[in-house]
Design a protein around this nucleic acid. Structure first.
Lengths: 167, 167
DNA sequence: TTAAACTTTCAATATTTTTTGAAAGTTTAA
DNA sequence: TTAAACTTTCAAAAAATATTGAAAGTTTAA
């Protein structure tokens, strides 16, 4: 496997993985491309390498910046904007964990809390709804605490967490 | 909020969360419905409560069974099939972790391994591709080990893991 | 056997999501 | 200012995905 084959394999794998996780293909592929590019890339570079339109590139780069994992960079004397990815994979994971907690986990926790607080009326179905949503709420809360713990950790958290879990 | 309102809120929240994670709405909603139903439901029940077609119900129930989180049940003297969900949320999480590891993490690890093993040719771009895919490979490996650790754990793993991480 | 009661399959349709590309917007150099 | 160099926006088109429903398949009771 040569460089180009390997790079394309990585980019397309990352793209389909993204899809599986609710992230669109272009967004995941742009991220993969930036992650392995030694230098910042312009929008043109990205459009050309991934064969996507300007609009597509622009919108997905924006989303990646909203996620806090891609940054704009300016080269001196050039008007064009360049883009780079967060290169430290553990920092990347922390940032994604942080955003997913904020965007998904926390709103879900709120709804589970509301639903599990309806008043008990003695019927089996109400009892079951309360019981299951309470259990999910507890689990989601624990996960959120774990994730926030990890977010506040230093760069080697993953190894440390592993060591602790194995003990 | 009364029972019906709460139940619908839970089912629709679970449905849209599912979508966000690459799981289709009907599948996530069927799962939510079974999770809070005190008794097994027939396909008719599910079709009626979620207003979906027979084909849709049948296909998504099958997928949920493939994930190992929904089971068929037979009532004595009845020909119709009934369905229940795994009710223990920690067991549910373990089962999902197990399947995602098998279906996604492991294949990805394999590709990262292949890509990161291309031969160094002295160029910056090759060096960067190898470096980044190696880092991802290492992280994915660690995550897989952590997940498998969790999968082999008893039902209170989540609390225990939390305690360890906080220490 | 047969036929009723049920489930599965799958081609067609509908829905949702993504992508395009050109117009509008912005910034900067002259 | 103006116009060139660039980016963003967004309506329309394309692509991907989910859903339907009826025909085919299966199982069981009689």
């Amino acid at each position: 496997m040569d460089y180009n084959e390997a790079k394309n394999k990585f980019i397309s794998t990352w793209g389909s993985l993204g899809t599986l996780w609710g992230i669109n293909k272009a967004m995941a592929q742009i991220h993969a491309l930036l992650l392995v590019s030694p230098d910042p890339l312009s929008m043109e570079d990205i459009m050309e390498q991934l064969q996507i339109s300007r609009g597509n590139a622009s919108m997905n780069l924006r989303q990646l910046m909203d996620w806090g994992i891609v940054f704009k960079e300016n080269k001196m004397g050039e008007r064009k904007e360049y883009f780079t990815s967060e290169k430290d994979v553990q920092e990347l994971a922390r940032q994604i964990a942080k955003e997913r907690s904020r965007r998904e986990l926390q709103p879900t926790i709120k709804i589970l809390k509301d639903v599990s607080n309806i008043k008990e009326d003695g019927t089996a179905k109400t009892r079951e709804l309360i019981k299951q949503t309470k259990a999910l709420h507890e689990m989601a809360d624990t996960l959120d605490i774990m994730m926030n713990k990890v977010i506040g950790q230093d760069h080697n958290w993953i190894t440390k967490a592993l060591v602790k879990l194995i003990k």
